[in-house]
Simulated assay, not measured.
Amino acid sequence: MKAPQEFRFNSGCLALDLVATVRRRASLPHDVLAPPGAPARWLRDAALLNDLSALSVAQEAGVRLLRETIWTLADAVTQGRALPAEAVDYLNAVAACPVPVPQLDAASATILRIATDPVQAALATIAQDAVDLLGGPLRTRIKACCQPDCRMLFLDTSPSMRRRWCSMDRCGSRAKGGAFRQRLKESHQLPE
């Protein structure tokens, strides 16, 4: 059996992957960035930090604040509401910070991301991704999972734009299984 991954990176873009760190937002929210060190692990797993650095309490709070800002804005887009100006201002301020410079490491033939403040640069990278998403043509492809207790946001890149669930393996499977059980139950009921 495959061990569950700590973080999900299947929403279709970096900014929405950060938002997905609150699971079951519509029912029993679970913040996977709440444990100490989790924000640093997420930034490393998202390939935004070269190594696992310890983040300060303020830096961890900054990751969570950016996540909630992106959630507020993306949720407004999916609901057809105006973007809250305060959230837009915060996102733009974070996006204006310097981003890391990619450098090829000769010894390992891997990419290193070099920045004076690696955590701030990582947040700027996420914020710039969110700006591109929310202000660009893909904004119409942001959807919320149709599973009522989930509502995870994802980018629908399917040609028909008919994707309904954040993941077919998770919510899609649960929804289809539930619908099957309901049909089975209804077909076995006797008429009155």
Rank of each mutant, 00 (worst) to 15 (best):
P191C: 04
R64M: 07
T72C: 14
Q120C: 11
T116N: 13
A87G: 07
R162W: 02
D75V: 12
A130M: 10
I126Y: 01
G80A: 06
D149S: 15
E192Y: 06
S27W: 11
L49T: 11
W165E: 04
A106D: 15
L73M: 12
L112N: 14
A122I: 03
L73D: 02
M152G: 05
G172F: 06
S160L: 11
R44F: 13
L65P: 00
S108H: 10
N50E: 13
D149V: 08
S108L: 10
G80Y: 09
K185E: 12
F7D: 04
V57K: 12
P191M: 04
A179R: 12
V32D: 02
A82P: 01
I111K: 03
A121F: 08
A106E: 15
Q103N: 00
K2V: 10
C145M: 03
L16W: 08
R23C: 03
R67W: 03
L48Q: 04
C13V: 08
A76S: 15
C150E: 00
W42N: 02
A122T: 03
S158W: 06
P159S: 11
N92L: 12
W42C: 05
R174Y: 04
R139C: 10
A40Y: 04
L52S: 09
Q147W: 14
L153A: 04
A15L: 02
D129N: 15
G80M: 05
P98R: 05
M161E: 13
R139A: 15
A54K: 13
V57G: 02
C150Y: 00
P102G: 05
G172L: 08
H30R: 13
Q59F: 01
D169F: 10
L83G: 02
P137T: 15
I111T: 15
L43T: 02
A58D: 15
A82T: 14
A76E: 10
P148H: 12
L33Q: 08
R64D: 09
